[in-house]
Amino acid sequence: MNTATKEINSSLLSTQNKNTDIKGKLIVGVTQLAVFTIIAVLFIILGIIVYEGREKFSWEFISSFPTNGMTEGGIFPALIGTFILVIVMSIAAVPFGTITAIYLTEYASESSKFAAAVRFSVRTLAVVPSIIFGLFGLGFFIQFIGAGFDTAFNGGQLRWGQPNILWASLTMSLLTLPVIIVSVEEALKTIPRELREASLALGATKWQTIKNVVLPGSISGIMTGTILAVSRGAGEVAPILFTGAAYYLASLPGSLSDQFMNLGYHIYIMATQSSDVEKTMPIQFATTLVLLILTLSLNLVAVVIRSRIRRKAK
């Protein structure tokens, strides 16, 4: 290559560089700005909550009942109520979601119209606004099933036909079902075909193969789904508004037909319906802090487990 062509080449390169340089810098700048904004918003929110909530946040706050017309004291019953809610919800949603996922990945044929309809329903369920679930729970569980049960078995005496933990949990389980189904489906799909074939070739039935090979290999996926669902259920308020959450209860719920207090709902009523909103501000922030710690740490655990599954799948 002689000197002349070298120069031409290098000048071509440099003009190209200038053009792409400006565009490139602009794109990098815009993306960096976007990322920075998101991080800034997150840190401002977290910062304010931690800063404002730190004063009230203590073991005593977590472990004591609200006092003095809910202007003082702690959030113990709301925390316990939230726990019971997510536990009952998981008992209902995890087996149901897992079985659905097993059907979709293991039994339904690819051309099955029914499976396609189920998948479509699951996807649709995932985008239904949470308040709609709340209304559905009120209409279906409380007024239809609960009231129907009372009329049929309780001689019309009101027991199940009103908001309670059971109906709130079941409503919440409908909301979190898609999360579980999708997570479990993902996990089932990571089980290699070779392992299924090994089991079948030994004379195992399809169900034996699922039970002994596929499900044990998917345990972490089922756990991820459960944790994500629990974290979602712990944070949602709309589905339990009409189905079981209570403003204030002097004692912890003793049965599934009792109402319950809840962290998210507690923040809502403290901010909107408290007798002294200004005075309870620190309580609101500290409650928010507790709820955030709860959901963020649950999500963190789920992320860790999920990344382990991904690594294993590779």
Binding site: E194, L195, A198, A201, L202, G203, A204, Q208, V213
Partner: peptide
């Protein structure tokens, strides 16, 4: 029953992610 009578060894070894013992015992257990 066919597959119990006619065993198969695959191209890529495919042991279950279980112990050596449980791998061999798998067919008996089912």
């Amino acid at each position: 029953n066919i597959r119990k009578k006619i065993g198969m060894v695959f191209q890529k070894s495919n042991p279950f992610p279980k112990s050596i013992y449980e791998n061999v015992a798998y067919g008996s257990r089912i």
